[in-house]
Design a protein around this nucleic acid. Structure first.
Ligand SMILES: [Mn+2]
Ligand SMILES: [Mn+2]
Ligand SMILES: [Zn+2]
Ligand SMILES: [Zn+2]
Lengths: 138, 138
DNA sequence: TTATGCAAAGATAATCATTCTTATTTAGGA
DNA sequence: TCCTAAATAAGAATGATTATCTTTGCATAA
């Protein structure tokens, strides 16, 4: 999993640095579409000298190179998603929790719908669902 | 349409002020899910003394009272939507344009799908599609 | 080896949307 | 008309993000 990520960096012509590896690992570990702040806090424990600016710069680089996605929210701080394949999100309206939601049947349903119901003057690139609600337990 | 809005304010127990009316009119006129900045710029022409803080406070009040919705984006500044009934959005990946998209058939399709495919540990409140792509002309 | 080039990281200042504070004004009911 | 809670104005403060500038780490060429 680590070598995997190193290879991806190299494919994109990006240098493999300890910071980049640490930031990506942090995002995987944190596992709730973390903010930059979450990432910084997590990394600071093992890697206390990392610079805030570096984290933001690395996150941008990752997004540009499609190693991460930004997640839309209505909050001030951006959240990041290591899951770059197309998928949907469950948003809790009470907490900051955002979970992934994958549903191949639903994707087909929607994709078929748009085959017969074109949107005038608009070329679709991708479709995401924001499913807002409340998690039960856990 | 204006009296309509005044009545809505009164129903909610909110005072009808020139600032509130101007802000709501601006959002309707601007008609592209404007930012606070767009609204301020628009209002300043007729109403030069309005305060920036007032605009933000009024926007919050409107959102709390369901007269406006916030629109999720991955940009820094928030956008506002006077269209509070549930509907979807077309996002252009090249420009800041966001259009409304309503599709009753699609809503039914999705709603039926979730009747038979419950999400474990999650109670759905609402579902919005973010349809990203590119507008043709116009 | 040593020098040169260059991407990346660190430190920290600057920016900019938004929020907060405090004094003042006003809408709307009594 | 008067009163008062609610709303606004002005501007300072905050906080996330971006920009700037210097330093570091390597690779490659002299
Ligand atoms: Mn709209
Ligand atoms: Mn911000
Ligand atoms: Zn995700
Ligand atoms: Zn809308």
């Amino acid at each position: 999993m680590n070598t995997d990520f190193r290879e991806k960096l190299q494919e994109k012509g990006l240098k493999v640095t300890p910071q980049r590896v640490a930031i990506f690992e942090a995002i995987l570990k944190l596992n709730n579409h973390p903010t930059a702040e979450d990432i910084i806090a997590f990394i600071k424990t093992n890697h206390p000298n990392i610079s805030v600016g570096t984290v933001y710069k690395v996150l941008d680089t990752f997004v540009e190179n499609n190693l991460l996605k930004k997640v839309k929210t209505e909050k001030d701080s951006m959240r990041y998603d290591p899951h770059v394949a197309n998928h949907h999100h469950l948003y809790c309206y009470e907490t900051e929790r955002i979970d992934d939601y994958e549903d191949e049947k639903l994707n087909e349903l929607i994709s078929n719908h748009f085959k017969t119901h074109k949107i005038k003057n608009f070329k679709i690139q991708d479709i995401k669902l924001q499913i807002t609600g409340k998690f039960n337990n856990q």
